[in-house]
């Protein structure tokens, strides 16, 4: 009566389909390997010529064909550090507001607006930094700061362009990343812990600062690391406001240069093969930094398993 239960096929559609999707997954690994290979092989000329000295040399002179990455590496980390210094307290404030204070309707609309800030292309921030922020800094903010020139951070002339401008722009750009991840982590702090704090006679702020924030520590750290990752690689906005001067300076008022802005500015103008190679090696350095940072952030988030999927970059 019934049809036979078995059917024998070596290549079932089931296996073909699974195999195909598997091959696509494999291609992601191959593409990544290709990325690494291309970066290494294209930066070989400078690597052969300068070796590890490339990382620590301060000189960047296309005319003399001497290339050193240090001012760019410095500029990249310094601008990102300034950005974190500004963005972290503001982002925590936003996260606290969204998770602890805001009524439901404000929570979703303010959250939405701040995430929208993350959707604005980097170029627009650059344009705004160049034409709006820069004159404001030059006229109102930097002159009083330069009166403090006995501090190494405020030496120099008010130009409007430089580390301060770039740091501020980067701060605005990474605030959405840090604040939305921190908010998601703070949400996951169980209500009974907050109630426990309140029952001990803590004020609302004390509950936030002594219960909620400490409980979200590792998530906030993850958010900061991801924000840092974004700031280090950010290109267009920084290129437009950093001042593009390869120098090693602590002063917020000084112009500088970052890895990404050097690549953006010089790549199409580079005639010398060695300069291209040097720029690609700068890119390789940026790649390695961002891989380390993102892998670290990912591992951090894997470790807190309660925290699955809520966080987005």
């Amino acid at each position: 009566m019934a049809e036979r239960l078995s059917r024998k096929k070596i290549l079932s559609p089931e296996k073909i389909f699974m195999g195909m999707t598997g091959v696509f997954s494999l291609s992601v690994l191959l593409i990544s390997a290709l990325v690494v290979y291309e970066l290494f092989s294209a930066s070989e000329p400078t690597f052969q010529k300068f070796g590890l000295k490339f990382l620590v040399s301060k000189e960047w002179d296309p005319v003399q064909k001497v290339y050193g990455a240090l001012p760019f590496i410095w500029g990249t980390f310094y601008t990102s550090f300034i950005a974190l210094l500004i963005a972290l307290p503001v982002s925590l404030g936003i996260a606290i507001f969204l998770s602890e204070l805001a009524p439901a309707w404000l929570r979703s609309s303010v959250g939405f607006l701040i995430e929208l800030l993350a959707a604005i292309p980097s170029l627009i921030f650059g344009l705004w930094g160049l034409f709006v922020l820069s004159p404001i800094l030059q006229q109102y903010i930097e002159p009083p700061l330069s009166n403090l020139s006995w501090l190494p951070f405020f030496k120099g002339y008010p130009l409007g362009l430089g580390f301060l401008n770039a740091g501020l722009l980067l701060a605005v750009m990474i605030i959405p990343t840090i604040s939305s991840i921190s908010r998601d982590v703070m949400y996951t702090v169980p209500a009974n812990q907050r109630e426990g704090g309140l029952a001990l006679g803590m004020t609302r702020w004390e509950v936030v600062s002594k219960v909620v924030v400490p409980n979200s520590r590792s998530g906030i750290l993850g958010a900061v690391v991801l924000g840092l990752g974004r700031a280090l690689g950010e290109t267009m906005a920084v290129t437009m406001v950093i001042g593009n001067t390869p120098q090693f300076s602590l002063s917020l008022l000084d112009p500088g240069y970052t890895i990404s802005s050097a690549i953006a500015n010089q790549f199409t103008e580079a005639f010398d093969k060695l300069q291209i190679s040097a720029l690609i090696e700068l890119g390789l350095i940026l790649f390695v930094i961002s891989v380390i940072i993102n892998a670290f952030a990912k591992l951090l988030m894997l470790r807190m398993n309660r925290f699955s999927g809520g966080a987005r970059i």
Binding site: V28, I31, S32, L34, V35, E38, L39, A42, L226, G229, R230, L232, G233, E234, T235, S260, I263, A264, L279, I280, G283, L286, F287, S290, V291, I293, N294, A295, A297, K298, I313
Partner: peptide, 15 residues
């Protein structure tokens, strides 16, 4: 792929 997501745009250009 998560690590790839954090690679800066400019690096993708170089590749």
């Amino acid at each position: 792929s998560d690590v790839l997501a954090g690679v800066p745009a400019i690096v993708a250009g170089i590749v």
